[in-house]
Amino acid sequence: MTALLEIRDLKAEIAGKQILNGYDLTVKAGEVHAIMGPNGSGKSTLSYVLSGRPGYKITEGQALLAGADLSQMSVDERAAAGLFLAFQYPLEVPGVATMTFLRAALNAQRKKRGEEEMSSPDLIKRVKELAKILDMDMEMLRRPVNVGFSGGEKKRAETLQMMLLEPKLCILDETDSGLDIDALKVVSNGVNQLRSKDRGIVVITHYQRLLDYITPDVVHVQSAGRIVRTGGKELALELEETGYARYQSEAA
């Protein structure tokens, strides 16, 4: 069976500076991977390279999503192919109601995949269900995308988008940052509902805390732009004890 995400010896740079240095990672459908590492180790870079953010350039190696070469796809094509990035800092889109945004995004993806658009009543019904799981007020969805949202509200909204779009591969970039413990539980609950045998989840985080709620199958330690160690969920606990210092020196 083809891996959902297959990254082979990936090298990538931004503004001429190499950030990923021969990255290898394989995520199979049904798995939850955690990528941990010190600040500046290129964790967010990985998420941007995979999603195709302008300015992030692959120089060597390959990244395949369900066998398809990501570097050959535009940002929106990657999204329609099932790649979702939950942003560390979700952007504001002034003047665009969240509900309008959700409808536009979902139907754009469906259209690209040759599927029928979701009708407005069905969409509203679905969004209501999700909002309930995430303990969100429907009133929030009438407000412009992320405008005036608190940190916790933004992360809930990201999770709601992810749950609505039902991606094949979810990449969560520091989703725990800026969350209090209650919001963390709610968001984790949403993510856990997405766990399925057909879906892969990559959780990028600095802290073990999030992994108390989203239990990973595999934990990687990233340092200086590549994975330096891989283990089971106990590795995260070990890191909590020992810190990242030894990996930073190892990579150097």
Binding site: F84, L91, L106
Partner: peptide, 24 residues
């Protein structure tokens, strides 16, 4: 960044621009 965000959700570049402008 906002265009990238919208496109990451599946909107084409044209649709993303139109959405941002219409919001504006």
């Amino acid at each position: 960044d906002v265009l990238f965000y919208c496109m990451q959700r599946g909107l084409s570049q044209e649709d993303a621009t139109a959405l941002v402008v219409n919001g504006f």
